[in-house]
Every structure is written in structure tokens, then in C-alpha cells.
Design a protein around this nucleic acid. Structure first.
Length: 278
DNA sequence: ACCCAGGAAATTC
DNA sequence: GAATTTCATGGG
């Protein structure tokens, strides 16, 4: 990967196995919106950013400092997805096929607290409404970093609110789960800072101390918030896909990069709903 | 009106 | 313990 620093932007060249739109719209993050011209506006790590992508150039309207400190790792630009895809493709012919439908998806490295709250909201919900609830949550108590653009709230800011205060975001029964997560993060019962020193199962058990965090939500938080790529979230789509396409496989059969395989399969399943009728 | 949504907790069997 | 119901809200 090489890049050029321009006055208002960074241009990255020579990226293979990366598609901006697929990466931002595959259901792993909820704060990027597509503009009419195909660019995306979003917020992460307290920064607003505009992004666009042509065949061979990834353009980020940001400073070199933020590119190196935040966005390079956010988009996982230094991991060799081509090599991983090759290895995964050897495991099963259908996985090789599935990867072809989303060859440019990468696993984002999001902020742990944001991933935790976002995937609590995701339960028994659809991606469009999840985005709406998260957006209203940010407007309610996130810092306004530009006019009309809000950062994801800190645990401290959320801690000043009651469950009743959360009513405007219309999270429904999930509001009490958000409150429990915030409480346990603030009082140290769940320590997001030291999760990286734990094994996968230990970290998962920590997260599941929170009400509203079960196995699937915990896997999502570990995969998208802590970049633990062996995580293999099983939602309704994945259960159907595994039963039909990989009846003899479990997540762990896909190895240390199972989370990447999961994205290929999830995306493939959503594009081919007819495979799962009956 | 009915069913489902990137589930999990509460209840019942 | 495994299977079922309930939980808010919005969209098809």
C-alpha cells in the first residue's frame, strides 16, 4: 500500500481486495451514509470523514496524522485479505464461491464501546432501524463535532441518563440493556480496556455479564470492536446459510479468520434468499 | 391483520 | 434442560 498526501485528502493506491461500499454497508457498522455521488460520510473515533473509492484509488478527506493513527487500522488496510481468501477458499468450494460475491469486504476495527452498544441495539432488529436508533442516540448525548454531526457518546455521557431519558431514541426493550452495559463499563465490572489480554472465551464471558449480551452479540463485539477475527457470529441468516451450504461445518472449522469467512457467507446469503425457502 | 428483523431474557413444559 | 413466549418498534 502506498499513499499520497494532498492538501485536503489522502489518496491510497494499489489496494487490492477492498471495496468501500461493500465494507460499509454489510451490516458491521451503522454510522456511514452514502451520498448521491457515491461517496460516504461517517463518524468514528470522534472524527467526521468523507470517503470515496474508484477502481484503484481510495480517497479519505482527512489529515495524514488521522490517516496513520485512525483510518489505516480502521479499514484494516495492512492485512493481506488476498492471502486469507486464498486459504479460506481451499477449505470449501462453496466458501470460495461466496467470497466472489463480496471480494472487497474488510472487517473494520471499530471502537469497542460503540460496537458494544450498537450490537446490543441490533438484536431482533433490522439494519436500517439500528442505524436510526444509533443516530438518535448520538444526537441525544454525543458531542457535536460539526454542525449537525455527532460523535458516538462516551460511557460517561450515557451514564448521566436514565432508561426513561433514552425513550426518544426508540430503542424499545433494548434501552434497559444499554443502561446495564453503561453501568457495568463505568463501575469496572466489565473492563473493555483489558479485553485484549484475555482469551477469546474469557473475553466473551466478560461481555456476557451484561444484560442483553448473549452469544451472538458478544461475538459481534469481539469481531467488530476488538478485531478478534476468529469470531463467528451466528444470526438468523448465518444459521440458515450454515444449515444449507455448510451442514458439516461449525465456525471454528474456518480457523483463525473465521470472522472474515462469516462476512463472505452472510453477504452471499443475503444476496441469495431463494436458497433458503422451505 | 400478520410476519419478520444480524437475539436474549423470562417463562413454561 | 430444552422448547416456547415475550419484549418495542417499524416496515413490508
Amino acid at each position: 500500500m502506498n499513499y499520497k498526501v494532498l492538501e485536503d485528502r489522502i489518496e491510497v493506491y494499489g489496494l487490492s481486495d477492498f471495496e468501500l461500499k461493500d465494507t460499509l454497508t454489510c451490516g458491521q457498522c451503522f454510522r456511514f451514509k452514502e451520498n448521491a455521488d457515491g461517496s460516504f460520510l461517517g463518524v468514528a473515533f470522534g472524527r467526521v470523514i468523507v470517503l470515496s473509492k474508484t477502481d484503484d484509488t481510495f480517497i479519505l478527506y482527512t489529515s495524514e496524522e488521522d490517516f496513520l493513527n485512525i483510518w489505516k487500522s480502521y479499514f484494516d488496510l495492512e492485512l493481506d485479505y488476498g492471502k486469507i481468501k486464498e486459504d479460506l477458499s481451499k477449505l470449501h468450494p462453496t466458501l470460495k464461491e461466496a467470497a466472489k460475491f463480496a471480494p472487497g469486504i474488510r472487517i473494520l476495527k471499530q471502537e469497542p464501546f460503540e460496537a458494544l452498544i450498537s450490537f446490543i441495539i441490533s438484536q431482533n432488529n433490522n439494519i436500517k432501524r439500528i442505524s436510526g436508533i444509533v443516530e438518535r442516540l448520538c444526537e441525544l448525548c454525543g458531542e457535536e463535532i460539526e454542525k449537525g454531526v455527532y460523535a458516538f457518546p462516551t460511557a460517561e455521557a450515557l451514564g448521566r441518563l436514565t432508561v426513561e431519558d433514552l425513550a426518544p431514541i426508540r430503542a424499545g426493550f433494548r434501552a434497559k440493556y444499554i443502561a446495564d452495559a453503561v453501568k457495568k463499563v463505568l463501575n469496572g465490572e466489565v473492563d473493555l480496556m483489558t479485553m485484549d489480554s484475555l482469551s477469546y472465551d474469557e473475553a466473551k464471558a466478560e461481555l456476557m455479564k451484561i444484560k442483553g449480551v448473549g452469544s451472538k452479540v458478544a461475538d459481534c463485539v469481539l469481531l467488530y470492536g476488538f478485531h478478534k477475527l476468529s469470531g463467528f457470529p451466528m444470526d438468523v441468516w448465518m444459521k440458515r446459510a450454515m444449515a444449507v451450504l455448510f451442514p458439516d461445518f461449525t465456525g471454528s472449522d474456518f480457523g483463525e479468520f473465521a470472522g472474515i469467512a462469516q462476512q463472505y457467507i452472510f453477504h452471499y446469503a443475503r444476496l441469495h434468499p431463494e436458497l433458503f425457502e422451505n
